[in-house]
Write a protein that binds this DNA or RNA. Structure first.
Lengths: 157, 157
DNA sequence: CTTGAGTCCGACTTATTTGATCGGAGATCA
DNA sequence: TGATCTCCGATCAAATAAGTCGGACTCAAG
């Protein structure tokens, strides 16, 4: 239960990858294109493209068009929270359908519903949790490309 | 995002209702049948039946067959957690598909996946949150028996 | 200034999950 | 014994998610 979608999964992977390339190792501020990420993680190219578009539209990354184009983090990794990323892809957090209902529309159960209020509390707690964790926190201790000698820069494998 | 299913919703409502009838007001230890709950909250009868069956199978409630039959909480409301209820309906908590993977099966992204570990931490935090909240907590504001001394064990009202 | 590599974007198809329904078997009390 | 109720498996329909396709726009190199 409470599973996040594959798209959200891909978003997290892609952002983490971009962050690593941008801040993690020697290659300085290099842009990352869709194809590179798709191949690295075995993600369907077209689907990943859509995910990255959504992230761009929501201000998580910046896109640069044309040849040698690609994506860049819109701001520092420590200022991008998990909550922001997930909401960019899956829409606002909401345990139940009635989470964001205005006073106008009711669910069929609303009149006798006693679980709405406590569930909203739970939801709020989860949100705070997701919003306190940043992209930076997800880069800790991962031995990815790790040390790459400066002489081999630009040569990715 | 992170929405729980309608069935889980119904489960929470139904359990809360049963708990109220059993502990909350004057009618003492009365059993509650499916129809009563379905009508009270406008839930499709057959669907609610399935939900209650699942709850029964998972030890949340006890079923009593035949005429004048119905459901009863299997134990005190303070010993039934939200996590237990949700897992009875929706299966084990898992943000990603790979949450419960054994070492044998890999997802396509596993080899380069750097987000698994941090996500598992988040997942664990959410679980603790859901597991620390009980059915009793969801009855807040409703005057119920509250304190039950250990000496009255076995006598559930 | 043309061309090709690359992003961008929306519509579309397919697969999976969820919501809801139906029919009958077994249990219990009057 | 009969009426009522839970129990349980199978099935259908609707909603959502995953993945695909085709074309328009943008930029840098030749």
């Amino acid at each position: 239960m409470l599973k996040i979608s594959k798209k959200a999964d891909y978003a997290l992977m892609a952002l983490q990858h971009i962050a690593l390339v941008q801040f993690g190792d020697v290659t300085p501020g290099r842009v990352v294109n869709t194809k590179e990420i798709a191949e690295e993680y075995n993600i369907p190219l077209e689907l990943l493209a859509k995910v990255l578009q959504a992230l761009s539209k929501n201000g998580m990354i910046e896109s640069h068009n044309g040849p040698k184009g690609g994506y860049l983090l819109a701001r520092n990794a420590s200022h991008i929270t998990i909550a922001q990323i997930l909401e960019s892809i899956e829409g606002p957090l909401g345990l139940t359908d009635c989470s964001h209902e205005k006073d106008g529309d009711f669910c069929m159960q609303r009149e006798h519903c006693n679980i709405r209020t406590p569930l909203l509390k739970v939801q709020d707690s989860i949100y705070q949790l997701l919003n306190s964790m940043t992209l930076q926190d997800m880069m800790g201790g991962t031995p990815l490309i790790t040390i790459q000698s400066p002489s081999t820069q630009g040569v990715d494998r």
